Computed example of a mutant assay.
Amino acid sequence: MAIYLDHNASAPLLPRAREAMLAALDHVGNPSSVHGQGRALRAVIDSAREQVAALAGAEAKQIVFTGSATEAITQAIVGGVKVFGIDRVLVCATDHAAALKAAEISGVSIRILGVDEAGTVDLDALARQIDMANQAGEKLLVAISWVNNETGLVQPRGRIEAMVGPTPHILVIDAVQAFGKLDLDFAASATDMMAVSAHKIGGPAGIGALLVKGHADTVRIIPGGGQEQGRRGGTESAALVAGFGNACADIGKTLDLDATRALATSFEQQLLSLAPDAVIFSRGAERIGTVVNFAVPGIKNTVAMMSLDLAGIAVSSGSACSSGKVGRSHVLDAMGVPPELSECGLRISLGWSSTVSDIETFFEAYETVLSRHRRKGAAA
């Protein structure tokens, strides 16, 4: 039986989400149609919107369904630059590629905020940028990934909101890896726009959402036929939306965060027992508690992943959004991790389906990887 330890890439589909999707597929029509079939599909979407809003601490009217979190982030950054007359976009060096690439095509200048060795954003640099913009009469859009998808590091969202919120500047939060694990509290927050994803919590791939405050309702990149209250054109997929909504309703009952975090802690303890020279990235900083990104010096991630994959164990070397490529991590590079250690980085990420047995099976296979490495070192 395959062991899946890659929830940050995509979580297994929750049973309730699957059932909701199959039920939605039985409906025929277009949710924008006024006849009975169309109204039935609209009811499915309205119900799901309420479910997503409940998990996000948002109002239903603040939920804009998109084709992915990447689209949501792009809409927030590229669309936000146009609507709010932004002069400069600030992104963190360890942000997801979705934000970094969207900033590149935004049409305005970009400033990359550095991080410390744990990956925490340089708040002093952010304060300086805000002061300079205020003095010059410029407007900033600040985009920050709340929870890093590679290391699990939690950025100080509260402090960032306290810095940006009282100003005319715009704050965009990538909450993809925080969704379902931390309290988003969007409606009451100082965040202007926030991106979330379905498939990271056990919903289907191909559906995400942008959470928007009322003043950002005109932020869009796909005008289309007026769907999503004119904020994102294109006929909604009732099946994907239903799966998203029901995953949101079910994840709180299915994911035992305390137990999952205990699994991650046990993983780290076993790892350091077997390989005392292992480096756990961002250790000592605030982390989400469901992700362990580590490296054993001398064991390249390509070698380790191949051996684990042959044993039926799915792990990753970091983000899964680079067309299947395995290599150096821009996150670890930004943290100042030496290239020879970065190339050894492996990530395990846990979620609703993870068990103690999964961890035990991982180490049964990983001991073989370590033994082979030690024999090679002894022979050298």
Score class of each variant (00 low, 15 high):
A2T: 14
I3H: 06
N8D: 15
A9V: 12
S10W: 00
L13V: 01
P15A: 06
E19T: 02
A20M: 02
A20P: 01
A23P: 01
Q37I: 00
V44K: 10
V44S: 08
E50S: 13
E50F: 05
A53G: 04
A56W: 02
A58V: 04
E59V: 01
K61G: 11
V64G: 04
T66A: 10
A69S: 14
T70K: 15
A72G: 13
Q75G: 05
G79P: 07
G80P: 04
V83Q: 14
I86W: 08
I86D: 08
R88I: 01
R88W: 03
V89F: 07
A93N: 02
E104V: 11
I105Y: 07
S106V: 05
I110H: 12
I110W: 02
I112N: 10
D122E: 11
L123T: 10
L126D: 05
A127H: 11
A127D: 14
A133G: 06
L140C: 06
L141P: 05
V142N: 09
V142M: 09
I144F: 03
I144V: 15
V147G: 06
T151K: 02
G152D: 04
L153M: 10
R159I: 12
E161P: 09
M163D: 07
V164L: 11
V164W: 10
I170K: 12
V172Y: 10
D174W: 02
A178T: 10
F179D: 10
L182R: 12
D183W: 01
L184H: 08
A187V: 10
V196M: 05
A198F: 04
H199D: 15
G203F: 04
G208I: 09
L210S: 05
L211T: 02
V212T: 13
V212A: 12
V212E: 07
H215I: 08
A216F: 04
A216K: 05
G233R: 09
G233C: 08
E236Q: 13
S237G: 04
S237P: 08
L240D: 10
F244W: 06
A247N: 07
C248L: 09
I251R: 11
D256G: 07
D258C: 00
D258G: 04
R261M: 12
F267V: 01
E268L: 02
Q269N: 15
Q269L: 13
L271Y: 03
A275Q: 09
F281T: 00
V291K: 02
V291T: 14
V292Q: 05
F294I: 10
F294Y: 15
P297C: 10
P297V: 09
V303I: 12
L310T: 11
A311I: 00
S317W: 03
S322Q: 15
S323G: 02
K325L: 12
K325Q: 14
K325I: 13
K325A: 14
V326M: 12
V326K: 11
V326I: 15
V331Y: 05
S342L: 04
E343Y: 08
E343Q: 15
I348P: 02
S349L: 09
S349P: 03
L350S: 10
S353T: 14
S354N: 06
T355I: 03
T361Q: 14
E364D: 13
E367F: 00
R372T: 11
R372D: 13
R375Y: 08
K376H: 13
G377T: 00
G377Q: 15
